[in-house]
Design a protein around this nucleic acid. Structure first.
Lengths: 312, 312
DNA sequence: TATAACCGTTGCCGAAACGGCAGCAATATG
DNA sequence: CATATTGCTGCCGTTTCGGCAACGGTTATA
């Protein structure tokens, strides 16, 4: 089913790989063929699409405009294909997800397992990244659904949902703080703290709050793996911070206790956004999974905020 | 700038014309070429796209799916072209509008005149139709912006705005009703009435209200031209009904008086919807005009409802 | 500084796709 | 029954496409 001119596909491959020869290898064609299609495209548009650096190609402004169009075309072609396929038989296709680490613990595995139980021919690709990389992957058409901290998102993305979860401290059951219902940041900083590195979004949530405090926190462990931080906390090394999304795991893990953070009397929220490219209609199977994801996250938001209500 | 395979364009032409030979004439190619491209497309999709009637071609279900994709591709190509053009120089392109008759009196001519004053290279195509035909033209990709009575719209359309205007009676200055501030339907039906035919949306607004009344209205004039109905009212033939959009003309036309309708103590609203295809990003110049249109209609809605406030 | 590894581009040539012409059978119109 | 229109199909010249090999240029490495 290849009814679009090769130029479109070649251009797309060159944009992704950043080089004509690399694109040719991916496409299983000679590099000369790719080169010629690009040149022909540039001639028809009437303006260069790439800047030729010695090390590869970079998009020009016009090139980025064409990239946007080509992305729209190819993604809509995918949708068309899935529409036709769903006419005669079961759904089939690949849902590609880019998300931050908080989801890997229970939300995504639960959802995907249950979804695969109902639609066996739908496969998944999951890439874990930092929040800004998630949005970037989405913009570049490398993922269908993105889940990231709700920062300002570029206009080519659409926020399909926004869910807020409480940020909290995670400590070992034997930790002095463990008997409290909630904790403040000051209380945590009295103990050794396991900090997130800037690549994790938790860093950007906590840093402004820490900066407001007068005392300088004592040096602590820093890491970029939520899992590692949690395991360190379980071993009593210190206080870790994370959003309240690992509730299943935490309630199963008898070594750990989750303590919602209070800051100046009000909860510290971590806003989770679900994103898709704006200029796009999702294939039916992707849209269906998206709906389930939004529903499930809404469910957890409700449940977890009920488990730790904010009573001023 | 033709970087999409001929099959796409040929398919599009065949869908619009309903026949391969007609499409070939439009495209200035031999009909055999068109026929072959369609056959090739069907072979690649793996399913027939058209039903071959002796008199021409009709889309199959799969064909409609492909038509949707092709429309998305070609409309987005237009947008890309306009983006590139706007990079180097002024906007240029054509805004195609499908709308109901109420707009032709002052809203559209005013807006288009003022817009053309600022952007000379943007041209316009306006087609006046019934409300459902407006939506259909939009769905089929034959118009960029649609303005129609806000009925239930198909899911492939997006309602960019919704404005409500009061429905009212239009009578000659010498008419017995002319001294009132507002009128009820009963009061109007005591006089000869100039009714709209079902092709006008006013018919569908008034019919349910008339049906609620116990008395059967006396036979009256029926017409499908708002202009004609207005001229008849000016000549004292009877009471006409229309939405309050012709305010400029009416206030200039000393022969006529507009009387807002009251029904059971509350105004009778006529909802005007502005529509665009949902799966589409408008070219910059079209988007710009759309914004002005929405702003202008909002302005008139505000102004006219202030001129005839509803005081229960 | 010499060498090797990439990079994009170009000439040449066979293969594939495309489009025009004329003619076919089927169907609708009068 | 005659005529017109429909979509489709061989045939054939033209255009486009892709593979191969080679060229000039830049970058990294020895």
């Amino acid at each position: 089913m290849r009814f679009h001119s090769p130029a479109i596909q070649y251009f797309h491959a060159v944009r992704r790989t950043g080089s004509i020869r690399a694109a040719a290898r991916v496409l299983n064609v000679a590099s000369s063929a790719v080169s010629r299609q690009i040149l022909k495209l540039e001639q028809e548009v009437g303006s260069p699409l790439f800047e030729r650096n010695a090390r590869g190609l970079t998009l020009t402004t016009v090139g980025e405009m064409l990239a946007r169009h080509v992305m729209n075309v190819l993604q809509d072609l995918d949708r068309f294909r899935s529409d036709v396929a769903s006419l005669s038989g079961a759904w089939s296709g690949t849902v590609s997800i880019a998300c931050i680490e908080s989801l890997t613990e229970s939300v995504l595995p639960d959802l995907i397992a249950s979804h695969r139980g109902r639609a066996r021919r739908v496969s998944f690709t999951i890439e874990v990244k930092g929040s800004s990389d998630v949005l970037e992957a989405l913009s570049r058409g490398e993922a269908d659904i993105g889940i990231a901290m709700a920062l300002r998102h570029p206009p080519d993305l659409r926020q399909a949902a926004l869910k807020r979860f409480r940020l909290g401290a995670v400590v070992a059951r034997e930790h002095p703080l463990a008997r409290r219902k909630t904790v403040t940041l000051e209380q945590c900083l009295a103990f050794p703290v396991i900090n997130a590195l800037p690549e994790l979004s938790i860093y950007h949530l906590l840093q402004p709050l820490i900066a407001q405090l007068s005392e300088t926190p004592e040096p602590a462990i820093q890491a970029n793996s939520i899992d590692l931080m949690r395991e360190l906390a379980a071993r009593g090394v210190g206080v870790a911070f994370q959003t309240q999304l690992g509730i299943n795991r935490l309630s199963r893990d008898s070594r750990l206790v989750f303590l919602p953070l209070d800051n100046a009397g009000s909860p510290v929220w971590s806003d989770l956004g679900i994103y898709v490219r704006a200029e796009r209609t999702l294939p039916a199977y992707t849209e269906s999974f998206l709906q389930e994801l939004v529903r499930e996250l809404g469910e957890r938001e409700r449940r977890e905020n009920a488990a730790h209500p904010h009573t001023p």
